[in-house]
């Protein structure tokens, strides 16, 4: 169970290197100490070249079975985990939730226990319910890696976004990072906030008041409802999509049109920003809503770099999940 974090635990000094991981499971970044986040980013750096190479591959996870179980749609993350596992020499199995016994009324725990009985080592799970991976950790024996649970956390996305900033700017501490959009429903925002604060960034969230949860300031982030005022001072901006599928009551803002006008990143807005502004987006993009094509595909965009970095980060996370110590990249 994660300890209640103190707000603003940010420290600008480099954390001491770690020699062991706190756990093989990865449930969220809230409970990971800064030193361990840094160690995971270092591990990702060690895998970065291997990650996008089709000619070389590691044998570190040879004989291990990695199962990806996505009870919610995904393209990037699922492909990324599968490729990461294969590039480490693991066997992979993709469990298609839509055509599974889950749709016949079997509980999540029973489904996983059944797959587990066939011999698996690492379970990568995405689920629409916050806490689903935590439920599995209580009930099953496999190592569980959270690939996104409800609006709670998406730890590998938080790591890969932070890794992207680190590689582009050489540091995280002291940078001013804006996360713009549907913060309320975003697990990406939460995981980013934890990682960035722990590594010493100044974090701002920006969006309509109805999409920014009450009390988020208590975490140590700053809040803006005015993108034009905020943008010129940012070093990094991370644009999030509106999660329409999680909005069940009345719409939380008047129209997409108004939203795009107030909070969309377009060329005119980017001209007011620092020339060094790094533009990120976790995907999937809604072009013309939160980001215009010219910005998404423009020179400051790190969007495809994020995807490539995601592979390296997930290799690092699987390395940890398989029980190898920090540093080593071969068995």
């Amino acid at each position: 169970m994660p300890a209640r974090p103190k707000p603003n635990t940010a420290s600008t000094s480099a954390p001491a290197p770690v020699s062991t991981w706190s756990s093989r499971h990865l449930l969220g970044l809230q409970e990971l100490p800064a030193a361990e986040i840094s160690a995971l980013l270092g591990q990702a750096a060690a895998y970065r070249d291997l990650a996008t190479s089709n000619t070389r591959r590691s044998t570190l996870l040879k004989g291990q079975m990695v199962v990806t179980m996505f009870v919610e749609s995904s393209t990037r993350t699922k492909v990324s985990f599968n490729l990461a596992a294969r590039r480490l020499g693991a066997d992979t199995l993709d469990f298609a939730a839509g055509s599974s016994s889950l749709s016949k009324g079997e509980t999540l725990v029973d489904t996983v226990k059944n797959i587990e009985a066939m011999g698996i080592d690492i379970l990568v799970v995405r689920h629409p319910a916050s806490g689903a991976p935590h439920l599995l950790v209580r009930q099953v024996k496999s190592v569980v890696v959270n690939a996104g649970d409800g609006a709670h956390e998406h730890p590998t996305q938080g790591l890969l976004d932070t890794f992207t900033i680190l590689r582009a700017r050489g540091k995280v501490a002291g940078l001013k990072v804006g996360i713009v959009g549907d913060i309320l429903h975003s697990r990406v925002a939460r995981s980013n906030i934890w990682a960035l604060l722990k590594l010493g960034a100044e974090v701002w969230v920006c969006g309509p008041a109805t999409l920014i949860p009450d009390g988020i300031r208590d975490l140590g982030v700053k809040v803006s409802h005015d993108l034009d005022a905020l943008l010129p001072s940012l070093d990094v901006v991370n644009m999030l999509r509106i999660q329409h599928e999680r909005i069940k009551g009345p719409p939380l803002f008047p129209s997409i049109h108004e939203y795009a006008r107030l909070f969309g990143l377009n060329a005119a807005r980017v001209r007011s920003a620092k020339t060094s502004l790094l533009v990120m987006h976790p995907g999937p993009l809604n072009r013309g809503v939160e980001i215009t094509p010219e910005v998404a595909d423009g020179p400051r965009s790190a969007i495809l770099e994020q995807v490539a970095n995601g592979l390296a980060v997930r290799m690092a996370v699987l390395h940890r999940a398989a029980g190898f110590p920090p540093g080593a990249t071969s068995a």
Partner: peptide, 20 residues
């Protein structure tokens, strides 16, 4: 019931962190 919505826990700091 409208304010309750699809809520499953108290709305506050913890629900915000847990994304519930």
């Amino acid at each position: 019931p409208n304010l309750f919505g699809c809520g499953c826990m108290h709305e506050g700091r913890v629900s915000m962190e847990l994304g519930l």
